[in-house]
Write a protein that binds this DNA or RNA. Structure first.
Lengths: 159, 159
DNA sequence: TAATTATATGTAACTGGTTACGCAAAGATA
DNA sequence: TATCTTTGCGTAACCAGTTACATATAATTA
């Protein structure tokens, strides 16, 4: 199997390869959604799933769960609100917090959306397997314990 | 091991997890470089390596090798030129092409930079292993054969 | 209770990438 | 050779995320 430049670099090319993979998937996903659901953007998917499961959540909680900064989540939420999929209201117990929940429109449309998600999921299973997901989880957990930045600072101190 | 929301989603969370990993590594890398080499940015690394190996290359070739769009590569190259690490000149055989090469300054500084790269590489080896890289290569190759987008369009046609 | 500190949200400015477009040179074809 | 098509570069406009900052409320402590 012929390897490309980044693949040949082994560990050195790792970060760039993950970025390449991520960007590639993202731009494909944008196009997939463009064809399937004109109104809906790819990263709304997880917002739907999260709120479907939890009912309502604050901005910060959601950002943490999904791995975004809170300003990023606010931007996503504002778009979804503008299209009528999401509504926000003040937490009566803590008026600093804005809680978000799905609208009726979302609830009605979710079954239709789920068909698309299932299709996408079945395609993802074509090119990744359980083993890869497990390895990925290991990597995530190691980085969660100690980030790349922390690890490098430690090494620098050692010297 | 406690799983987070994205990890629990299995295949559905895959794209988002790759993105989370990619972004995390990227922002860490920015901070690492901020501490180590004030002048140098993380994604210059691969430009140095590529030109060190190939001597000189055109903008489009480099973009393809590194998985960027050509405008992205031009931006990176312009920054590197501004700091004196890179120089461009017209290809005498094809005056559409701009060839890029490393400057003397780059050649002199590369040994110093290599120390940092080795340190980073040794840290990457702490949280990924050969097996993970191999699995990643498999995934890349499958997607190279047929992208996510192509696979989904095929599935849609089947129906 | 008053003052301080911490947390939640929202906005602004920035960044690293993209796509879209225009122009010039090279290659292919009538 | 003259025209058409393709390729390569560069710029402009855009986008999804970030960090930094401001403000308001809640929690803690003197």
């Amino acid at each position: 199997m012929k390897k490309d430049f980044l693949q040949e670099l082994e560990y050195t090319g790792f970060t760039a390869r993950i970025k390449r993979l991520s960007d590639g998937l993202l731009y494909d996903a944008i196009n997939v959604y463009k064809n399937m659901d004109k109104e809906i953007e790819p990263n709304w998917h997880l917002v739907f799933l999260l709120l479907k499961e939890k009912g309502e959540m604050s901005v910060t909680e959601m950002a943490k769960q999904l791995g975004f900064s809170h300003p990023a989540l606010i931007k996503i939420a504002n778009k979804m609100k503008a299209k009528g999929y999401l509504e926000g209201f003040l937490d009566p117990k803590d008026s600093r917090r804005t809680l978000l929940r799905l609208t009726k429109k979302s609830i009605i449309e979710i079954p239709h959306l789920e068909q698309n998600w299932e299709l996408i999921q079945s395609v993802i299973q074509e090119f990744i397997d359980k083993e890869f997901l497990d390895k990925l989880t290991e990597v995530e957990n190691r980085l969660n314990e100690k980030s790349l930045l922390e690890r490098i600072n430690l090494k620098l101190e050692e010297k």
